[in-house]
Amino acid sequence: MKVMERVRESTVGRSIWRAPDRATERDRAAGHWANFFLHIYPVKMRRKEMTFRYTWFLGVASVVLFGSLVVSGIYLMFFYVPSPASAYGNIQNIQTQVAFGQYMRNVHRWSAHLMVLVVAAHMARVFYRGSYKSPKEFNWVIGVILLVLTLLLSFTGYLLPWDQLAYWAVTVGASMAGFVPLLGETIKGILIGGDTVGSATLLRFYVLHVAVLPTAVVILITIHLWRWRKDAMLDTGADDE
């Protein structure tokens, strides 16, 4: 503790933290403001909004699961080539040859399933709490988009092992898109890039899964949290029993 304080108050420490004093609440608020990582949080919140009962911490849980997916996903990317000729063999290789490969794949899979579950539960919790009401309407809309993106991420990842489970689930999913009025066949074509699920589909789903969709999710989560911070003090409890 002492050492940390000395570091904070040194010339270098002052240049990093900028508000090194921790004596008064005002100091600490200044330190909070000056911190990049803390700036997604409000400085103060009502005691009630911090309890398990209020949020069940489902939002935090989704972010943590997303982080776990990014880490395990990057690990898996080192050992995977998205082509029908190699994909399945790569997965077998990950499971049998790569250090911690099987474990990382498990982490990725279960994090993904849990994330779908937790995001859905988060939405239900926000509904019952009434936290979508004015002026937070648009943050709810962003949340719905994030739910859809979560499902798409999970579904695009489902194809990558190129096993029977993957192939036919995506065949059925793409056929569903084919029933959209007027545009059905076009959408299906763009989705799978050919007559049937094949190498073009695998590549498209891979790019969506590792680049396009995660970027979209990161941007939207940032906006989601920023708006959450702005609205943090709104629930005055006037309605509580």
Binding site: I190, I192, G194
Partner: peptide, 10 residues
């Protein structure tokens, strides 16, 4: 993004 021609089938 338009689907390409697949060989053989079609």
């Amino acid at each position: 993004l338009q689907p390409g021609e697949s060989a053989g089938f079609g």
